[in-house]
Design a protein around this nucleic acid. Structure first.
Lengths: 316, 316
DNA sequence: ATGAAAGCGCTAACAT
DNA sequence: ATGTTAGCGCTTTCAT
């Protein structure tokens, strides 16, 4: 492997001069600059980035913790992040956590071991108290709101969006409203959904909440359970358009009129929802990811809210 | 920043002993090992990975070049890769190319500058001749078949799958078959599709080929163009289930019976296709990605074929 | 404008 | 079993 010393020797200059040429410093005579460039080209030399990272103490690399890597919501965030990374000169390393606390901490430790300049947490398993200490080693940006001032965040006011959906449904005359969520009660968004439900509808009715819904099939099964109850719900708020699609499919298969017999609302404005005419809440997760990435690159700890929008379609 | 020397000094040993403890070497007395570990804990010390990467000459990091980061097909490959990366102890850096040749070469140069141990190319813009030279700096794995023996690949026999679809359609009595593709004629899969078409149907009829189709909306527009011709096609082979979904939507909106008036075939077995009952070709892109990742990690240049499957549904 | 030299933080060959 | 030391390949003072 040819290195900076080889170049220096062959160009008849010192390593510092080569380094200056490499980094476009001024104060190098045009003559030597040209000579060095020529040798570099001849030897097809490229500097070793690990040495540069070591000495500079930064890598221009940003990590993104993603719990599931086949989930629409996190995919959207990742898309936003990746788009932004093309513009800025940073590369992104994707870190799948599956909400494993230990693994998540290992990823955080990558800040400490200088492998990452910053870390974007799309969703976390550990408590903030476990995470905050790592902010001394690099910027940490969250895609969920937190008051902790050591953490920057790009977030959407999910509680407000949940509230609005339940209110909209109630206004349309629905009294028995069910909903699905991804993780169980340990997740913030599940808590917020339940909270919003109680706020608008009142007492929580356990049989109208199905957890662990991620994909189409989960939605289908959820619908099966929900709609086979004696006093079945007249509206279902799904935690994603794919899940909503599964519910839609179940209704279609069982000849349940939408929205007359069952109204459906999804989330994230996916093509599947568009094609089925499912009312949805667009949380603009791609824009959120892009914003998070900008915060990470600029090492800014601002709290930036991304506005959501409800898209009315024929399913409500 | 505390480093290995600090630990050595405080533990009353040499740096090599600390290094040995760090790397779980034998031949360290239990006494010193304990002492070192204690000091490490006390100082909350973590080795600087850049120094390790520099000296070892490898990073345990694999790059993945992805042309579009909001495309079902590439998303699936990425999912497969990411899943595999959780098992193996490698991290993955995602490199969005948008088929920009210069950018793609910059990514390849990351092998040379030691930022990456290996590179997975899901789809490329440059000619192999431009890419091959970089194989001397690291393993390069392609997700498309190539005869070049310097390149390992995990691939699906797309030509065979295209052939089979056209044959299946022909057998069902279709004579006017149209199809959509992503990129134009510069892409391999477009060429293969056309090739298969000619092989089964005969002379290529330009008006039955719509390029630049990526999403639902593109499919809708393609259907609009295709189905408004005097001698319109009776079957459309879409280059993805989302595009197929757009075609489906157009047909539904315009009261065209599926499959009686228009048969539709998609690709990649996405939820949207499942819910709409669209016949599809599952190219098992996720498995393909996982396989590519394994090849990359093991620095193996094998050519491994992933079998595809055709899933018959009500749209044909 | 240019070069010498001191690191950056670590591993590993060599010696003991 | 442990320590000494020479790098890995680069940047950056500090002289000149």
């Amino acid at each position: 492997m040819t290195n900076i010393h080889d170049i220096a020797k062959l160009a008849g200059v010192s390593v510092s001069t080569v380094s200056r040429v490499l980094n476009n410093y001024k104060y190098v005579s045009e003559e030597k600059r040209l000579k060095v460039k020529q040798i570099i080209k001849e030897l097809n030399y490229t500097p070793n980035n690990n040495a540069i990272d070591l000495i500079r103490g930064e890598t221009k690399r940003i990590g993104v913790i993603i719990p599931y890597n086949n989930n629409q919501a996190f995919d959207q965030m990742l898309h936003g992040i990746l788009n932004k990374s093309s513009e800025l000169d940073f590369s992104v390393t994707v870190l799948p956590s599956k909400y494993n606390k230990k693994r998540e901490l290992e990823y955080l430790a990558m800040l400490k071991s200088k492998q990452l300049d910053a870390l974007i947490i799309t969703s976390k398993a550990n408590h903030w108290d476990k995470i905050i200490p790592f902010t001394q080693y690099g910027t940490i940006i969250s895609c969920e709101y937190t008051e902790r001032e050591e953490i920057g965040c790009a977030y959407v006011d999910r509680f407000a969006s949940y509230l609005e959906v339940f209110q909209m449904l109630k206004q349309k005359g629905h009294q028995r409203i069910a909903f699905t969520t991804a993780r169980g009660n340990e997740s913030i968004s599940t808590k917020q959904t339940i909270n919003a439900y109680q706020n608008v509808i009142g007492e929580m009715y356990q049989k109208f909440h199905i957890g662990n819904c991620f994909c189409l099939e989960d939605g289908y099964k959820a619908a099966e359970i929900l709609l086979n109850q004696k006093n079945r719900p007249t509206a279902i708020y799904a935690n994603g358009d794919e899940v909503a699609g599964g519910i839609f499919q179940y209704c279609q298969y069982n000849k349940l009129q939408i929205p007359e017999e069952v109204a459906i609302v999804g989330q994230e404005n996916q093509p599947i929802g568009e094609v089925l005419g499912i009312t949805t809440v667009n949380h603009r997760l791609s824009a959120l990811g892009a914003q998070a990435f900008e915060l990470a690159v600029n090492r800014t700890l601002d709290k930036i809210e991304i506005p959501y929008e409800i898209i009315q379609r024929s399913s409500t």
